[in-house]
Nucleic acid binder design. Structure first.
Lengths: 185, 185
DNA sequence: AATCTAATTCGATAAATATCGAATTAGATT
DNA sequence: AATCTAATTCGATATTTATCGAATTAGATT
């Protein structure tokens, strides 16, 4: 989940909350003081602080009448560090469905019976279709051109085009008139 | 202004925009591809990308039919770096009115004529009042106790209390029955 | 030149949220 | 125990904004 990151950025995505963080970076303040400095009502500041606290950016402790808030630099630095790293960035997108694009192209170009309405002319869409078609071939098996055409004819009558593109895209190989599927992954 | 920072955080304060950044961290994508991957309409993705572009986090270039978007790592790293530094953090709060708290306390405790309704018992509020009262004394001049009381009586009848607190707080000094103001700043 | 196609802009709508004032709570001071 | 005080919570409101579909635009392909 990227919820933790969203909380972090949402917490800082407000002008007044940024000012609070800026102020707390210099010293600790009570809610009342922050309200006076920012010209906001204490209830509003309290609301802002609870968002910052939810993101673990601030902590508070009681001090006589006041709750004194202080900045938690460690969390800030940890997040800043992650922004640098490739892994940290990519983790943010972890739950994206990487096959959704292929699925959409396939839907757009297929009939109910699974045959292709047309063969897409555009490179990226053609590639998506080819990846799909290639699943009809078993890895490790050598197919005659005749057999390849049989299988491809389930998708579209222009088997020559499909065959040529499969080889051209590197999904399949050809040698001595025989074809085989390149191991995927 | 902290507008630049607000733009930065606002740009990333959305789950789908975070996913976009995560995806672009691995490779470039067209609007259409991103829309398919995120299961959003192209118009929505376009909107998200324009926010990211406004924060200078992404750039686009035309490529045949498509606008291909790519991540600008430099901006991301520059911001991340600033999050570490004291100066960077404090800069965020640059335009906060640091005297607003004192002004509020003063307002709360003063009558229209400038005299004090009461002398605040709470430390922080008393300090704010004392800073105000101390402005009635010129630095570099030595005052007799009688003269000090005269001046303080403009604010409140309990001049002894004010005098004692001014010295106690370090705003004024006393020696041989004479008083003077400590240079501020 | 005519036609396609992806991208963008625009208008509308529904959901999220910043702000305030009133009521309540939690703690400290007397 | 009784009283104060700052903080918090709650309810209401106005603003912002995420999303979509329709219309338009900008570019490339034919």
């Amino acid at each position: 989940m990227n919820g933790e990151w969203v909380d972090f950025f949402k917490a800082l995505a407000d002008s007044n909350r940024l000012k609070i963080v800026g102020l707390l970076a210099e010293k600790s303040y009570s809610v009342e003081e922050l309200a006076a400095l920012l010209k906001l009502k204490p209830s509003t500041v309290s609301h802002h602080l609870s968002k910052l606290a939810q993101a673990e950016l601030v902590r508070s402790h009681a001090e006589s009448y006041y709750s004194v808030y202080e900045l938690d630099r460690a969390v800030l630095e940890e997040k800043a560090r992650a922004l640098f790293s490739q892994a940290g960035l990519s983790a943010v997108a972890a739950e994206v469905d990487m096959d959704a694009y292929d699925a959409k192209v396939l839907r757009d170009f297929s009939r109910r019976d699974g045959r292709l309405k047309t063969i897409p002319a555009q490179r990226k869409k053609l590639d998506a279709i080819l990846r799909h078609v290639a699943r009809s071939f078993e890895p490790g098996i050598r197919y005659s051109e005749k057999r390849v055409n049989e299988i491809l004819s389930r998708y579209h009558e222009d088997t020559a085009l499909l065959r040529r593109e499969l080889v051209g895209s590197g999904l399949m190989k050809r040698e001595d008139g025989e074809y085989w599927k390149v191991a995927n992954e």
